[in-house]
Amino acid sequence: MATPDFIRDLRESIGRQLLWLPGVTAVVLDDEGRVLLGKRVDTGGWSVIGGIPEPGEQPAETAVREVFEETAVRVVPEGVVLVEAMPPIRYPNGDVCQFMDVTLRCRATGGEARVNDDESLEVGWFALDALPELDAYALTRIRRAVEGGPTWIHGLDAAPTAQPS
């Protein structure tokens, strides 16, 4: 994902130290039940589409913007799939970030999938039984988006260990 200007400005003050950021992921499904993926320039791997909200931008707005910017596909967000703090990531330049990810299930409404910016090497639609190699977290987000059900919030999914007195 390209680094937004406001984060570059922050990095001038804080250097490479840990930066806590919001992140939005869009699991985009089409009418055939396929999922939209992008092959990332920075890692060379396939992933669901996502990015960092601009200051003041709502998560649904971020999903719509990021999907279109990266793939030229138009979407409508349909629901929150999960909310989870990701482990810290150290980028090749030494920057350290940790993201609070909000994953949204989105329905494709138009456009043709294509590389639409400099963040992707390829983009494409994939049947759920023919996905390329993806990390475990991407697979979890896809599975939860397809299954539906309540929003999964890390830390609230287990039964309580003690009863209140």
Rank of each mutant, 00 (worst) to 15 (best):
V73G: 09
A145V: 09
T3G: 09
E61F: 03
P87I: 03
A162V: 08
L104S: 04
W152T: 07
T3L: 15
T62P: 02
G50L: 10
T161L: 13
S165W: 05
T109H: 00
S120Y: 02
N116F: 05
F6T: 01
L156E: 02
P4T: 10
T43N: 04
D117G: 11
A127P: 06
F126P: 00
T140C: 10
R16L: 14
S47V: 06
V80M: 14
P87R: 07
P150Q: 12
A138C: 14
V81H: 08
A158D: 11
R8L: 15
P88G: 03
R40E: 14
D117Q: 06
K39I: 03
A85S: 09
E122T: 00
A162C: 08
V80R: 10
P160C: 05
V102E: 05
P22I: 00
G44W: 08
V146F: 05
L134G: 10
V27F: 03
V115Y: 02
V123S: 07
A26R: 06
V76D: 07
V81T: 15
V83S: 09
R8S: 15
N116P: 01
V64K: 12
T140I: 10
F6W: 09
P53R: 05
W125M: 13
V64S: 09
V67N: 03
L104V: 07
M86C: 12
W152M: 12
A108Q: 11
V115A: 04
I153Y: 04
V115F: 04
F126E: 01
L128N: 06
T62Q: 05
E61Q: 12
E69N: 12
G15K: 01
I89D: 05
V48S: 13
E57W: 03
